[in-house]
Simulated assay, not measured.
Amino acid sequence: MKLSVIILNYNVRYFLELCLKSVEAAMTTIDGEIIVIDNNSPDDSCAMVRQLFPNVTLIENKENSGFSKGNNKAVAEAKGEYLCILNPDTVVAEDTFKKLFQFTESKTNLGIVGCQLIDGKGNFLPESKRNVPTPKVALKKVLGNATDYYANQVQIENSAKVDILVGAFMWLKKEVYEAVGGFDEAYFMYGEDIDLSYKVIKAGYDNYYYGETSVIHFKGESTLKDAKYAKRFYGAMQIFYKKHFKQNLLFNTVVWLGIKMAYLMRKAPVDVALTSHKSYIYTKSIHKDLEEQLLKPLEIKEVIDDKIEDHSMLVYDFNELQATAIIQDMKVKSKQKNIKFRFLPKNSKFIIGSDSAVNRGEVLHF
């Protein structure tokens, strides 16, 4: 078997459905498997997977064991030569996996590969490619200067070696994952992708950013939105520094002060609601119940075009459109003012989208 796609889910049932449908569309010609491991979600994620995706391997944890333990458990069951560690709030293009095979099969010292991630507003996510967050780099970042944190030396559409990839999308051989011990289970959430990336390059492999395919990651990089988050995130960074960098009293004091300063100086997240004045839906046929709920005036378009107004909501119908075309259109229209993107999964009765890394997204049933 060539590929195992590993999706760790917690309480995002509707994003998971959209994600799984995109993954299935991307694996039609690939010898592979999809494994969903659920961390005891209180919603009906598991029931949905059993009902709609009977060919997906579902692992149901009885507790939320965190990102690292969950993924390690799923990888232990994986049969593929390659792994794709994937967040449930993502949409992959139909040719993403094929392109990655073409890119990676020629590499002789392959570590982890990441790709171009965009958020739910079509904007590039800079965490797609990062440098090693040395204490100096990380301290500058938490104080508001991220110049050295992100791998800005690599252009968004290009491909090149980088050090650190993001856990929302990681492509690597299973043998490499196992050689470095997988995700460190000392991390519950946050920091484990930095740690794995760093372990891989320290083991002598080459990590790559591949900018020739794009994947939607709705939530994007989180912010210091509350004390619990700050404690987990910077606790994870402390684990990373203690593990990989030499320790001394001055170092520990600087890291501790940096964490405290970052939390105290954090800005409250501003979740600006996007106000729409008009709706568009790219479809050949719209369900009457959905039509009734969408903001008026409503314009139905059978094909994607550039003729839309600012301050509009766009609904993409996956029954008619491919993810590849949708992602490309989002990147173009993200340059307009105040555009909301919503998605109608194939054979589903809801639309979904997210305009912020702070909230949990919006679902509209019809």
Score class of each variant (00 low, 15 high):
residue 7 I to E: 07
residue 7 I to N: 06
residue 10 Y to V: 08
residue 10 Y to R: 04
residue 10 Y to F: 14
residue 11 N to Y: 05
residue 11 N to T: 11
residue 13 R to H: 07
residue 14 Y to V: 08
residue 19 C to W: 11
residue 20 L to P: 06
residue 21 K to F: 07
residue 23 V to R: 04
residue 24 E to R: 09
residue 24 E to T: 07
residue 27 M to W: 06
residue 28 T to E: 14
residue 29 T to S: 15
residue 29 T to A: 15
residue 31 D to T: 09
residue 31 D to I: 06
residue 34 I to R: 03
residue 35 I to T: 05
residue 35 I to H: 05
residue 36 V to S: 04
residue 39 N to C: 12
residue 41 S to K: 02
residue 41 S to Y: 01
residue 45 S to T: 07
residue 46 C to V: 07
residue 46 C to G: 13
residue 47 A to E: 13
residue 48 M to W: 04
residue 48 M to A: 08
residue 49 V to Q: 04
residue 49 V to S: 03
residue 50 R to I: 14
residue 50 R to D: 14
residue 51 Q to R: 15
residue 51 Q to V: 14
residue 52 L to V: 12
residue 53 F to L: 08
residue 53 F to P: 01
residue 54 P to G: 06
residue 55 N to R: 08
residue 55 N to C: 09
residue 56 V to F: 03
residue 58 L to S: 09
residue 59 I to T: 07
residue 59 I to F: 02
residue 60 E to K: 02
residue 61 N to V: 06
residue 62 K to A: 07
residue 63 E to H: 06
residue 64 N to F: 03
residue 64 N to R: 05
residue 65 S to D: 12
residue 66 G to S: 08
residue 67 F to G: 07
residue 69 K to H: 09
residue 71 N to V: 15
residue 71 N to P: 06
residue 71 N to D: 06
residue 71 N to Q: 14
residue 71 N to M: 13
residue 71 N to S: 10
residue 73 K to A: 14
residue 74 A to R: 04
residue 74 A to P: 04
residue 74 A to S: 03
residue 75 V to T: 05
residue 76 A to L: 11
residue 76 A to D: 08
residue 76 A to I: 10
residue 77 E to H: 06
residue 77 E to L: 12
residue 78 A to P: 02
residue 79 K to I: 07
residue 79 K to E: 13
residue 79 K to V: 10
residue 80 G to A: 04
residue 81 E to F: 04
residue 81 E to Y: 05
residue 82 Y to H: 03
residue 82 Y to P: 00
residue 83 L to E: 02
residue 84 C to L: 15
residue 84 C to R: 02
residue 86 L to Y: 10
residue 86 L to I: 13
residue 87 N to E: 12
residue 89 D to F: 04
residue 90 T to R: 08
residue 90 T to N: 15
residue 91 V to C: 15
residue 91 V to A: 15
residue 91 V to D: 13
residue 92 V to L: 10
residue 93 A to R: 09
residue 95 D to H: 10
residue 96 T to K: 02
residue 97 F to G: 04
residue 97 F to V: 11
residue 98 K to V: 14
residue 98 K to N: 14
residue 101 F to S: 01
residue 101 F to G: 05
residue 102 Q to C: 13
residue 103 F to G: 04
residue 103 F to I: 02
residue 103 F to K: 01
residue 104 T to R: 00
residue 104 T to I: 03
residue 106 S to T: 12
residue 108 T to K: 07
residue 109 N to I: 00
residue 110 L to Y: 00
residue 111 G to P: 00
residue 112 I to C: 00
residue 113 V to R: 00
